[in-house]
Amino acid sequence: MLETVPGLPAGDATALGREKAVLAYGFMLRARLLDDKFATLYRAGKIHGGVFLGRGQEALSAAIGVSLRDSDVFAPLIRDAAGRLAFGEPIVDAVRNYLGSALGPMRGRDGNVHRGYPREGLLPMISHLGAMISVVNGVLFARRLKGQTGMVGVATLGEGGTSTGAFHEALNQASIEKLPLVMVVANNQFAYSTPNSRQFACDNLADRALGYGMGAHNVDGTSLPDCLATIGQAVETARNGGGPQLVVASLLRLCGHGEHDDAGYIDPKLKASPLGRDCLKLAEEYLLSQKLADAAQLAVWRSQVVGEIEEAVNQVQREPTPDPFTEKWTALSSPHLNEMHDEI
């Protein structure tokens, strides 16, 4: 069931229900085990800079990825390994960006979760929260100017990012232009260490949709079938001309902000609450209860994914790292406009 090279099968929009759940579970599993591998490499001192995991958000993220087509646009954020893989990012490129391979998508110029292929619709995030949403708007706007129709753009954000001006400006802009934007907010209860009580004062972030003129959706972010249904509906509504949609998923971040953070500020009671359930375990229970897989099959898949990840890490560890002597050291694409000064 799991493909060796992740990517969307053709005509995925019709592959609803049971098959889609299995497909999404595959990407959740890949993301979780890949994140675990990055955490191990981080602790072993093999990774420069930070490591940011999506533990607890895989169901939501995978549901986004499997709901999109190749021609769609996706601006993932830091906890979207599952969605990236489901949208078509090869595991090996995720590994390359964390290990700083010169063959990776950012060639060592940027690292970790900052990666993508703008021309293929997978936008590389900058760190400033909310800043990618209007870029998705721009891609959708441009395609409409070019006469292209039928595509959707998804941007993701945590609840902390909803406090930015960029978030407000971009959602208002998307609504004015009636763009097929789906804004997915993972309300994981903490923005780094800041709890929701210090982040916003409304009852439900999805209520903000009314103020923008967007469709509103709430979903239990720990439930894969619920995420598939809700994200799928939001994406199809936007695709069919229903205008921008806001999805707010409730869940709990099951890790620190990054691997440098032990998240000691998270109340154990919250971890023990329904919000704190592990979406991967719930997804496995769902597959078993629906007889989409048995325990033996789950074990086979897990071992298969471990093999894929080990193979990717082994390959990348043999790849060249960026070379400061062959680096061009110019930020311009127009060579004739580089200053001589740059070469001093």
Partner: peptide, 11 residues
């Protein structure tokens, strides 16, 4: 932001 997105699309 919209301008950057449009530029990515070749406009």
């Amino acid at each position: 932001g919209l301008a950057v997105g449009a530029a990515i699309e070749g406009l």
